[in-house]
Amino acid sequence: MDWVLFLIFLAACGAAATTGAVFPPGDWYKRLDKPSWTPPDWLFPVAWTLLYLSLAYVGARIATQEGAAYALAFWAMQIAFNTLWTPIFFGLRKIGPALIVIAGLWIAVLGLVWSLWPLDTLAFWLTVPYLIWVSYAAALNADIWRRNRGFVPVAR
């Protein structure tokens, strides 16, 4: 593997991850009505760390492969939507618009998985957990939106 490529893709993932530090959940999120199947707070950084490492590896792995244009385009699309979601959900506290962003993220991840299948089996299987996690996160976002449509966010 080309370690410089891995570090470039890891930097993109790191930029997305930084939004979690810049826009932490805080008291507002704690006060929301959430479903019983909401994961514990400690799971989010663990899951995202593993997913970002996998995504960086997948990006570096496919970057030099012939026929990887669609996979790389979907990789770029997913990291853009991924980076956008946290500031909208936690920063602006706009649960509905965040649901639209996560729908775009889900489409991008599905496109990435779809484009990896004929290209690289290992990259495909390393990306499937990401699709599962984003599907779960989208369902969680949707249910939180449904439960809290009349909730007034606290002042920043």
Rank of each mutant, 00 (worst) to 15 (best):
T121H: 07
P118R: 09
P129N: 01
I100Q: 08
F90A: 08
A63W: 11
L116A: 01
A63G: 08
S115E: 02
A108D: 08
A123G: 14
A56R: 06
F81N: 04
L126Q: 03
L119W: 04
R93A: 09
I100L: 13
R61N: 15
L92C: 06
T49W: 00
G104I: 02
T121C: 03
L99N: 09
W106S: 12
T64R: 15
T83E: 02
L53D: 05
Y70P: 10
T121E: 14
P45K: 00
Q65Y: 07
R61F: 09
A56D: 02
L99D: 07
R93F: 08
V58P: 11
P118H: 09
A73E: 03
G104H: 01
Q65F: 08
A108G: 12
T127G: 07
Y70D: 14
L116H: 04
T121Y: 13
L55W: 12
L110Y: 13
D120W: 06
A73R: 10
W42I: 04
V101E: 10
G91T: 06
L126V: 04
W42A: 02
G67W: 01
A76K: 01
R93S: 14
L53G: 12
L84G: 07
G67P: 11
I95P: 11
L112H: 11
L119E: 00
A76E: 01
D120K: 07
G91K: 05
Q78H: 10
L119H: 05
R61E: 13
L99F: 13
L126R: 04
S54A: 15
N82R: 07
A98Q: 00
P118V: 04
M77K: 12
T127Y: 08
T83Y: 08
A47Q: 01
A60E: 08
G59M: 03
I62Q: 03
L72W: 02
A69M: 14
T49D: 07
A63F: 09
F89Q: 15
F44Y: 13
P118L: 09
A60L: 01
L99H: 02
L112P: 06
W125N: 06
V46D: 03
L43A: 06
F81S: 03
A123Y: 00
I107W: 08
P97K: 09
L92V: 11
W48Y: 03
V58G: 14
F81H: 01
I95E: 11
V46M: 04
A76D: 03
F89L: 13
A69T: 15
P97T: 00
P87A: 00
F81Y: 07
I79M: 14
F90V: 09
L112R: 12
F74H: 04
G67K: 06
L43M: 05
Q65D: 13
P97H: 00
I100M: 13
P97A: 04
L50V: 11
T127I: 12
G104Y: 03
A69H: 06
L99Y: 03
S54R: 11
W114M: 15
V46S: 00
L119A: 05
F81I: 07
